[in-house]
Amino acid sequence: MAQSLDRLKESPSQTAGPYVHIGLTPNFCDIGGVYESDLGSTMVNDQTKGERIELRVRVLDGTGTPLKDALIEIWQADAAGLYNSPAELRGTADPSFLGWGRQPTDMETGICLFRTIKPGRVPFRDRRLMAPHITLWIVARGINIGLNTRLYFSDEEKANAEDPILARIEHRARVPTLIAERQGDAYVFDVHLQGEKETVFFDS
């Protein structure tokens, strides 16, 4: 017998269930007066640097129907490509931009709306630059463990072409599942949980 590595196991995930709003966006589901506002509902203020954009995200099930009880969180760099995080050692991010947002999908339309800024480019592990991207984490009833994916931008063709994460996707036909289409000032992004257009989800 060798010595024990003395490691613990991560607590197993369980679904967020149909009532995730009670815990994470109580004001959205009419539980008022407990928290002043829902955490992560506002990402940008007058001082925030960068190009204002809107993300319209939907999550579609295996029949192509948008989920109306999902919750999405996003995490992104500021306009200069810096994360507002203690683990960011390259500099200080825009103090007027946390870079984290949380929104429920609309109970009628299934659209999840984020008002944010376009992120700058962040270096990969080997210092090559990744294309501008936003990290998504998706939970809902029926999702046993939160799904991780990335949103890239359709008007960043050159950067996307040299992005080291997009380059890892063996089935090249699936790369477009990670690219949001620009429509005016908004980017539209459909996440397909299943089927021919199934979005690439990451394990990282």
Binding site: N144, I169, E198, F202
Partner: peptide, 11 residues
């Protein structure tokens, strides 16, 4: 109907 069926891409 809400479970991805393809392999996750690891990095």
């Amino acid at each position: 109907l809400r479970s991805p069926q393809k392999a996750l891409v690891a990095f």
